[in-house]
């Protein structure tokens, strides 16, 4: 009796999908405050989960719950359709809990990620950024790994463009722009970085290069240490011999 469909896993297979989560914050211009923002709020920010380079991820990600700081009204925001993002205003940084709910076909439990909301510039040139009122982006590239996905979900992950008719309604024209790559369902990332996307094969190469150089440095150190070790061993041996000779 085979297991009922929907729970049987494809053995020995691992499927991954890249995505980005993070936040973007912009200081509010005190001279030109947008309406509807509380007086003490200094920043407008959005926290989001999205595909690399605007790729559609809604075929595996069903909804995202953003748990904001408790002082926000309705601090748990469930976003059930892309774009998965929450835009708010505020004055303080805090950790946002992102709970990712997967499509029912995946038959997986929701997963939690944490993201520290960044409003203030960090790193070198923080002061300069503050001065220029630059937009602060703090985001992470992440790959989600589906270990032994259930069969139905595996089919979804490995099938090409979605079947026509699976699209969900006409929710407005603004979504169309964010989902320009709806046809794509791959784990591939763009070859080169673009202005709005920092994650690409090129970035990966740089990262690899950096790691390899570090590895090389470590290997060189090991060689050196081993050479020193040999010398020491010899020294120790001679010393021991001397000591034995001098001992009565």
């Amino acid at each position: 009796m085979p297991a009922p469909t929907g729970t049987k896993r494809v053995k020995g297979v691992q499927v991954y999908r890249p995505f980005i989560y993070g936040s973007i914050a912009k200081p509010v211009d005190p001279d030109n405050r947008p309406a509807g923002i509380t007086a003490e709020h200094t920043h407008l920010w959005s926290v989001y989960v999205r595909g690399v380079d605007g790729e559609d991820i809604s075929y595996w990600l069903k909804k995202v719950q953003f748990k904001l700081h408790e002082t926000y009204a309705n601090s748990s925001r469930m976003i059930e359709s892309p774009p998965f993002e929450v835009t708010e205003s505020g004055w303080g940084e805090f950790e946002v809990q992102l709970k990712l709910y997967f499509v029912p076909e995946a038959n997986e439990k929701a997963q939690t990620l944490w993201h520290a909301l960044k409003l203030h510039p960090y790193g070198p040139d923080a002061e300069g950024q503050k001065e220029r009122r630059e937009t602060i982006v703090s985001q992470n590239y992440e790959e989600i790994i589906f270990n032994e996905p259930v069969e139905g979900f595996y089919d979804i992950l490995t099938s090409g463009p979605p079947q026509p008719g699976r699209g969900k309604g006409s929710k407005g024209s603004k979504q169309a722009s964010t989902m320009k790559k709806q046809g794509e369902r791959s784990a591939e990332i763009p070859q080169d970085t673009s202005r709005e996307n920092a994650y690409s094969v090129k970035t990966e190469e740089t990262e690899l290069l950096r790691l390899r150089e570090a590895s090389k440095a470590v290997e060189a150190l090991i060689r050196q240490e081993k050479g020193a070790l040999k010398e020491k061993e010899e020294k120790l041996a001679t010393l021991k011999r001397e000591a034995e000779a001098s001992q009565p």
Binding site: V13, Y16, E188
Partner: peptide, 19 residues
């Protein structure tokens, strides 16, 4: 393209983040 791999180590079904 679809990010499918057949790792040699034992897998347990479920979700992982690469990091």
């Amino acid at each position: 393209k679809y990010g499918v791999s057949h790792p040699t180590e034992r897998l347990t079904g479920g979700i992982q983040f690469r990091h």
